[in-house]
């Protein structure tokens, strides 16, 4: 049984209050990436941080910011350790984090059904006018093993600007690896969508 002291809880709160370097509207707590804080003596602490994506370059900036904040709080020695397991998922983003994303014009990730890419649309090709699986927002890769696990109707990605569910994919990858680029057919604004992983 691991017990958390009041100081550890306070340090965890401080580490969690650090803004994400790439999405500064979110704190690391909103993002769900600070896993634990362990005191290793009176003024030495170890922080467990998990990356969103394996190659996420923001991890180094996050570590530096956490070190700075905890040093300001009297910690002499701060070690930030990157842990992969249990793997981070977009389901770890808090409801508060999802609200902040939407408010800053980024469609939050949907809660994962069974994993894998969802809701990507392939336009008409030479031998098919549109994908047989249905209206916008359904899964074009339904025949592939990647998304075969996804079951049931997939919730559409709503436009963070006008709320319309009538949106289309422009690119699977956007300004960062964790986002896709979409466009709203109703208000015609492009927007980023935090992809489900």
């Amino acid at each position: 049984m691991v017990t958390t002291t009041a100081l550890e809880a306070e340090l965890l709160r401080l580490a969690g209050s650090v803004p994400d370097p790439e999405l500064p509207v979110l704190t690391l707590e909103d993002l769900g990436v600070v896993r634990a804080v362990h005191l290793r003596g009176a003024d030495a602490v170890e922080v467990e941080l998990t990356p969103t994506y394996t190659g996420c370059p923001a991890v180094e900036a996050m570590s530096r910011d956490i070190e700075r904040v905890l040093r300001e709080h009297g910690m002499r020695e701060v070690a930030v350790r990157t842990v992969l397991s249990p793997a981070w998922s977009t389901d770890d983003i808090t409801p508060e984090g999802r609200r902040k994303l939407r408010e800053s014009g980024i469609a939050p990730p949907r809660v994962r059904a069974a994993g894998g890419p969802v809701s990507l649309a392939l336009g008409p090709t030479r031998t098919r006018s549109s994908h047989p699986s249905g209206p916008a927002g359904t899964d074009p890769a339904a025949g592939s093993a990647v998304s075969r696990a996804a079951t049931g109707p997939v919730e559409p990605v709503a436009c963070p600007h006008c709320g319309s569910a009538d949106t289309e994919l422009l690119s699977r990858f956007s300004s960062t690896a964790c986002k896709a680029l979409r466009r709203c057919r109703a208000c015609e604004n492009p927007f980023d969508h935090f992809k489900e992983v």
Binding site: S89, P117, R126, A177
Partner: peptide, 27 residues
């Protein structure tokens, strides 16, 4: 631990390649 994490990322790589293969092959 790496595989559990990366398999979700690679699923997007695979989807990207599949969609382009459909687009180019059936283009």
């Amino acid at each position: 631990p790496l595989a559990i994490k990366a398999v979700h990322e690679v699923a997007y790589h695979r989807d990207h390649a599949e969609q382009w293969t459909l687009r180019l092959g059936d283009g």
